[in-house]
Amino acid sequence: MGSFGATAEFRTHRQVERFAVSSAAQNQSTAPDAAVSQTGTGRVKRGMAEMLKGGVIMDVVTPEQAKIAEDAGAVAVMALERVPADIRAQGGVARMSDPDLIDGIVRAVSIPVMAKARIGHFVEAQLLQTLGVDYVDESEVLTPADYANHIDKWAFTVPFVCGATNLGEALRRITEGAAMIRSKGEAGTGDVSNATMHMRQIRAEISRLTALPADELYVAAKELQAPYELVREVAELGKLPVVLFTAGGIATPADAAMMMQLGAEGVFVGSGIFKSGEPARRAEAIVKATTFHDDPDMLAKVSRGLGEAMVGINVDDVPEPHRLAERGW
């Protein structure tokens, strides 16, 4: 199976052979190869993210909100107990959501459901996998559980998305098994400036790699603190080997469209929808703006009549110890 492209070597430690031929009777099958299939492979995990491209993933805290998001055309919902703006306002330790809440949201919609685990909290991730969540977000929005290690994401069947502020961080997460990357931004602020900075940073670093002579990629890998093989792959592809979304501070259709023009392949919207005046209309407008991100006439049309955007906080007014983007390394 090694002939199916560069990503074939990314495999989990615990691939499950589902249609595995075990009995003698089955071994008489004319084409034994045709009876073997595997779940939880790198391609299946990364492929799931490919299917989300050009779409909007929305934070929801209740089954009702999940339905509104699905009605508006979200490609997936992120189930959580408090949106980042409330986590910020209320303080305290933020953890994985209650399983009942996640179950309720999984039952409410037919689109994929994601949920957040704390950085390094591999048992929260085990629970989320058992609950049937479609993607786990190892998220800086929650309080980290481990200040040294992230989760070994290869050990799971469920795929993971992780945040990154720069290329090195993105590649370290991919090394740990992340099948999708999102820029971090500064969640819960409605201030898009950090997301812009992270998208520009990642884009600039990728473009620098593509211009480097092959013999300088070794030092580039050292500087990025990322494995050489991945660095070389990025230099050859001119993009990350996994899908790159953006997140953190997106509050308007224009914000979403700007991130797409900066190279994001899709958008996470957290507090921006359900902390606004008319969530359903805003949600739908952000979906349309993501699809037609390069068409200003269409963007102007969908940006009308959306009511109040979330009030927001300037990132500069957030004291440094409370900045979420700085969690993770």
């Binding site: 037919s110 996998q129 993607y135």
Partner: peptide, 17 residues
């Protein structure tokens, strides 16, 4: 039938004629 094979943890790859 939509999502007939199950959720993402049931997504799979294999050989098919």
């Amino acid at each position: 039938r939509r999502n007939a094979f199950g959720r993402q943890v049931d997504s799979f790859e294999g050989e098919l004629a």
